[in-house]
Design a protein around this nucleic acid. Sequence first.
RNA 1: GCGCCCGUAGCUCAGGUGGAUAGAGCAUCAGCCUUCUAAGCUGAGGGUCGUAGGUUCGAAUCCUACCGGGCGCACCA
Length: 545
Amino acid sequence: MSEALRQALARVATKLGAADAEFVLERPKDAGHGDMATNLAMVLARVQKAPPRAVAASIIEALDLPPGVIEKTEIAGPGFINFWLATDELAASLRGIVEAGPRYGRHDFGRGSRVNVEFVSANPTGPLHVGHGRGGALGDGIAALLEWTGHQLTREFYINDAGVQIDRVGQSLWARVQEAAGRPFAIPEGGYHGEYLREDAVKVLEREGREFADLPDEEGVRRCRALALVMQREEQDRDLASFGVRYDVMTSEQAIYDRGAIPATLALLASRGLTFERDGALWLRTTDFGDDQDRVLRKSDGSYTYFLPDIAYHVDKHDRGFDRVIDVWGADHHGYVPRVRAALRALGYPDDFFHVTVVQLVKVLRGGDEVKMSKRSGEFVTLRDLVDEVGPDAARYFFLMRRGDSQLNFDLDLAKSQTEENPVFYVQMAHARMSGIFRVAGVAPEAVDADVRLDALPAPEDRELLKKLTAFPEVTARAARDLEPNKVTGYLEELARLAHGWYHKCRVLGEPPEVEHARLALARATRIVLANGLTLLGLSAPDRM
RNA sequence: GCGCCCGUAGCUCAGGUGGAUAGAGCAUCAGCCUUCUAAGCUGAGGGUCGUAGGUUCGAAUCCUACCGGGCGCACCA
């Protein structure tokens, strides 16, 4: 409903000679300011060199809208124009929600755009921790938002299976195999001391036989490296699946090497004159593209830095035809952003091709105290433990409800509590209550048509709730634009609050037939929006709790 | 030392890209309600938007400096 108004205002701006005017059309928090308000007059006042309130009057004069949309306009404050919508317009919105059903809130403005969202991408060296969980929830939420707005989307996981770290896991696992066979052993320098490798070693001996431990060290390490890789990947996939995250593409770093992409990328950079030699190493001139120092691609000992395969990987994504690539990285990698951006800029990719969303660290709280990550005690660190304790819905919701770039306090007690203070519970309960009305009435929500007159909704709560429902498409659009799923959780909490209040105040069943029918339609629409929001975020929308 | 992120009510956080008297939830206080699932309603108190300057009709929002917290700063991955 706001779209028609927005377009009408844009037409007026054009007529007044300011076609590119950037104005805001918003829903005022103060009910006294109408249903919609715009600052267009104040924006135009600058160009027109006229008092804002006078400009506002001429805007209203020039506004051409079909009849039955706006009931009243008003010039207020320094030059805001406030609009009150006609009730027929709201009734039409109610029908629109019910007709769109599960598609309500979707858009197609992203049509034709191919986007890749890469997230988690944990090293295959151990179990996922809570930070990965946050990256997983956020990456998946961003992906879902882009899908809802019509983008063609690929969810991708990058496996760092080629580096030194995986070698060290292989050595560490081999040591644990020796331990499990009752032999002297030593975890190598820089190796992995986690308990999980002990368990893996036992599995290895079960699967491969006791004589596996008798292999020469070199072969044992080599085979342990491969086994560890498979086992850790399986573990991670299982954890991600129980968390509701699935991928379209898994890309192996090793495969990029095997394909010869490394020398190819090096040649590409060199042919463009972007590299130079110094102190026996090969450098990329990233300072020409916004980095604060040049970066080494090939070390003086002839081996490559991690930077080069990373460039090759992004070149690969570009060559696969994506218009846009979004990487979700942990805060500990954010210093790495400028050099990758510089490299891609150097290759001539558009600036909006590459976007990094950084997730800050997660602090887990129990009983008000921080749960420390402790290797010694093996205390609660993994995503699996978290999901086992609070469930996948609460875990996802808590990771999503804050912006990625602020630090997150994950309150375990709150996440588990079955009270209104717990936002997940609160939102899901609102959905369950809407469902409960139909259960008691003995009718399916789908059987209730939305062909109602709005005068049949007598309470101000009816109208407030409906107005909130009509804001949902704007929320998904804005959340997708900003890549911020927390805008959806925030909206759902506001909607749930209104829904609970409405439920409490406005009786549905047993009212006069016209009122009962209209409120059933409103309950149906509310249930649709709550379900769509929850589904978008990868959460369940239970009918009873 | 340098770079990036953050700093808004007692707590946790919003704040639609510069607009109206800075908002919500929780907590506190005073009342009410107990229903289609108890997880609701009304009101009150609570703020130097980290600090100081600047930009302009207008700044929590943009710029500069400083303070505090976090992360990073390799020919590591």
